[in-house]
Computed example of a mutant assay.
Amino acid sequence: MDNINVSDPPARITTITSKKLSAKRAQTRIQAFLDDFENRNSTLKGGDKTVTVQLQKLNQALLDESQKRRKSAGEGR
């Protein structure tokens, strides 16, 4: 096993490119990732579910945002 110093902060990830996505498109991609991730890391294996829970919250927030935009666009007509 590697010697890991838990007092060291995690590595920072920096982007080198970015691409604009609609909330709906981002939500679709996150949902696909979550489905795949959960299939590979079933709860039977145990482990930390923190990342999964945070992605589920982000996914729900994007879905809510998309629904609010659709609703407000419909009221503006």
Rank of each mutant, 00 (worst) to 15 (best):
M1S: 08
D2F: 04
D2L: 06
N3Y: 11
N3R: 08
I4C: 08
I4P: 11
N5C: 12
N5R: 12
V6H: 06
V6W: 06
S7I: 14
D8A: 07
D8Y: 04
P9L: 01
P10I: 09
P10R: 04
P10V: 05
A11N: 01
A11F: 03
R12M: 14
R12F: 15
R12I: 15
I13P: 01
T14D: 11
T14F: 12
T14M: 12
T14Q: 08
T15E: 08
I16C: 05
T17M: 11
T17H: 10
T17D: 06
S18R: 06
K19A: 10
K19M: 12
K20R: 12
K20M: 11
L21Y: 11
S22Y: 04
S22F: 01
A23R: 11
A23Q: 09
A23D: 12
K24H: 12
K24N: 12
A26C: 13
A26D: 03
A26M: 14
Q27P: 07
Q27M: 09
T28R: 10
T28Y: 06
T28W: 05
T28D: 12
R29H: 11
I30L: 05
I30M: 02
Q31C: 06
Q31P: 01
Q31M: 06
Q31V: 05
Q31Y: 07
A32P: 00
F33H: 02
F33L: 03
L34G: 01
L34A: 01
D35L: 13
D35C: 07
D36R: 12
D36Q: 12
D36S: 14
D36N: 13
D36W: 07
F37R: 14
E38V: 07
N39V: 10
N39Y: 10
R40I: 15
R40G: 09
R40C: 05
N41L: 00
S42I: 07
S42N: 10
S42H: 11
T43K: 13
L44R: 05
L44Q: 06
K45Y: 08
G46Q: 03
G47F: 02
G47H: 05
G47M: 03
D48F: 02
T50H: 06
T50V: 13
T50Y: 09
V51F: 08
V51H: 02
V51L: 09
T52A: 08
V53E: 02
Q54N: 09
Q54P: 05
Q54Y: 07
L55W: 00
Q56L: 03
Q56Y: 00
Q56I: 01
K57C: 04
K57T: 09
L58R: 00
L58K: 01
N59G: 05
N59K: 10
N59R: 07
Q60P: 03
Q60R: 09
Q60K: 10
A61W: 01
A61G: 08
A61M: 02
A61S: 07
L62T: 00
L62K: 00
L62R: 00
L63W: 02
L63D: 05
L63M: 07
D64N: 14
D64W: 03
D64A: 11
S66H: 04
Q67S: 15
Q67Y: 06
Q67A: 15
Q67I: 15
K68Q: 15
R70Y: 13
R70N: 15
A73Y: 04
A73C: 04
A73W: 03
A73E: 02
A73N: 11
A73T: 14
A73G: 10
G74V: 08
G74W: 05
E75F: 09
E75A: 13
E75I: 13
E75V: 10
E75S: 14
E75W: 12
R77D: 11
